[in-house]
Design a binder for these strands. Structure first.
Length: 378
DNA sequence: TACGCGTGGGA
DNA sequence: TTCCCAAGCGT
């Protein structure tokens, strides 16, 4: 630990700080579904869902998920498709697959009981230093730091820490600070209170310092520099990809869908056949060639896109153009469809896990279909 | 270490 | 509109 940080830490009245922080939390904590008890499985699921995701977004997903998979055993015995479907729309889908993997390990190797040593917890798939500390402290009352973005923001201000919080190496500075100030008698509330404070009071922009229960301990507030902290470097700008998507229906009324690769972006999710736009020839020709070569079906693609849809990821953007087809030819003796390609009925598509952009496309298709039916009836 | 990995909301 | 983000982890 740097001498500077040590100096700052000695300025803090540890007992008063803990008392002010936890006292505020006891009065002001939000009534959240994962705060009903200290079931480690329920805490675990909530922590995974909350990674990089807002509380308001998580709540409905969490309630549905716990309804479907109320216990370690229930989740361990579920097929991955069902877990991914439950995660549809929440994003960062590897969280779901990693949680599933880890829960199966807990079921098989720990008799279904979430382990309570730092080493065992941290070895679980998808459980990093933050989540390990969160489960240990919140579910098991073990005094371990749980340093997330909130805690780094709050502590950077209270202790006037100017390390770049975007750098992975900075996290250990904050962990050390938490170890020095954590309430050994109530680490659960201490850690939760820091995060709650970051969410409600010590916000990224325009923090409510006058309402802050620990403002008397805050070095940044005393110096009037709270708006300059934390120091955080910008990320690089994102690239844009033109993505062509095609809706193909056979004579039985089924739709052509493909499953994405098992690793990388949107892993294992389903979508309508899509290809990155390459080059110079017409979009229709490019899609027809893609369908023939990669999927093994012949169809005529309309010249004009039926709809456009942007899909913004954290690191890239898809500008999607969606096309319909006509004059599909699939012969009885046509080659068997490649792996990860299938025909699905409309009902079956409802049950697949689709990326949000493809779900929106499908919903729009249903709306347009309904309109056409109405016109037809008149 | 830096980057890949989703999504929706707010300034 | 455009940007930045929100309870991170794996590689």
């Amino acid at each position: 630990m740097s001498e500077k940080l040590n100096e700052q830490l000695e300025k803090v009245n540890k007992h008063k700080f803990q008392q002010d922080l936890i006292g505020w939390f006891e009065n002001e904590m939000r009534d959240l579904p994962w705060r009903k008890d200290q079931d480690p499985y329920r805490i675990w699921v909530s922590e995974i869902m909350l990674q990089q995701t807002r509380v308001d977004t998580v709540i409905p997903f969490y309630n549905r998920f716990m309804g479907q998979f109320p216990t370690v055993e229930a989740l361990a015995n579920a097929p991955e498709e069902q877990v991914l479907k439950a995660w549809e729309g929440l994003g960062y889908y590897s969280r779901a697959r990693n949680l599933h993997t880890a829960v199966k390990e807990v079921h098989e190797c720990y008799g279904g009981k979430v382990p309570k040593t730092p080493e065992e917890i941290a070895s679980l798939r998808g459980v990093g230093p933050y989540t390990a500390g969160a489960i240990l402290s919140i579910a098991y009352d073990i005094p371990e730091p749980a340093v997330d973005g909130n805690v780094m923001r709050v502590f950077s201000r209270i202790l006037s820490i100017w390390d770049d919080v975007a750098k992975p190496s900075s996290r250990k500075v904050f962990e050390e600070a938490v170890r020095r100030l954590i309430d050994e008698n109530n680490p659960s509330y201490f850690n939760q209170a820091l995060m709650e404070l970051g969410a409600l009071i010590c916000t990224p922009t325009s923090p409510s310092c006058l309402l802050c229960p620990v403002n008397e301990h805050c070095l940044a507030f005393a110096e009037g520099v709270q708006s300059e902290l934390p120091v955080k470097t910008r990320k690089k700008s994102t690239k844009v990809i033109d993505l062509l998507t095609v809706m193909v229906q056979n004579q039985e009324g089924q739709w052509l869908v493909t499953q994405r690769p098992s690793e990388g972006l949107l892993a294992n999710l389903w979508q309508f056949p899509s290809v990155e736009r390459q080059g110079h020839e017409s979009v229709s020709r490019e899609l027809e060639e893609f369908l023939l070569t990669d999927i093994g079906v012949t169809a005529e693609v309309y010249d004009e896109p039926w709809m456009k849809q942007d899909h913004v990821f954290s690191h890239l953007t898809w500008k999607m153009s969606v096309y319909y087809t006509d004059k599909l030819s699939v012969f009885d003796d046509a080659p068997i469809l490649p792996e990860r390609v299938a025909w699905k009925t409309a009902d079956e598509i409802e049950g697949l896990a689709l990326p949000i952009s493809y779900r929106k496309i499908w919903r729009q298709h249903l709306i347009d279909n309904e309109k056409n039916d109405e016109i037809g009836e008149k």
